[in-house]
């Protein structure tokens, strides 16, 4: 399966990449903002996306709206520092399958991927 990692922090993108050895996931791209992510969804056709919310150019929720129009079957896991319950619910309503709140531990990332990829 093809994975797109979207986060404006290169260190967060690296942290997420660290967890992929146990999964049949190939990183096809990384994006630092929602606009870039949207174009990569069109060009690279990923199956799975991890998506930050607070990003420049286009935030993650707006990006999520747009990518769901392109591929409603895309498996999206939102990973965000915005830890109010309403934001998580908004993400789910917009089509995200899972959400995680930062600060996110390595165990929580693994749990998130397990749920997203139906490995539980």
């Amino acid at each position: 399966m093809k994975l797109l990692i979207v986060d404006d922090s290169s260190m967060m993108r690296m942290t997420i990449e660290e967890h992929l050895q146990d999964y049949d996931l190939e990183i096809v791209g990384t994006a630092g903002n929602g606009k870039e992510a949207l174009q990569m969804v069109i060009d690279l056709k990923p199956d799975v996306v991890t998506l930050d919310i607070t990003m420049p150019e286009m935030d993650g929720l707006e990006c999520l709206d747009e990518i769901m129009k392109i591929n409603p079957d895309l498996k999206v896991m939102v990973i965000t520092a915005l830890s109010d319950k309403l934001t998580g619910l908004k993400a789910l309503k917009k089509g995200a399958r899972e959400y995680l709140y930062k600060p996110v531990t390595h165990e929580e990332l693994k749990e998130g991927f397990d749920l997203l990829l139906d490995r539980k």
């Binding site: 404006d8 922090s9 290169s10 260190m11 967060m12 607070t54 990003m55 420049p56 965000t80 520092a81 915005l82 830890s83 109010d84 309403l86 934001t87 709140y101 930062k102 600060p103």
Partner: peptide, 26 residues
Amino acid sequence: DMAGELSNVVAGNVREVYGDDFLISV
């Protein structure tokens, strides 16, 4: 980058207290 991410997470988590009308920048 890590300095930015740390400040982002610390600020973003304050939404747990003030709700989604506590707006943070990148």
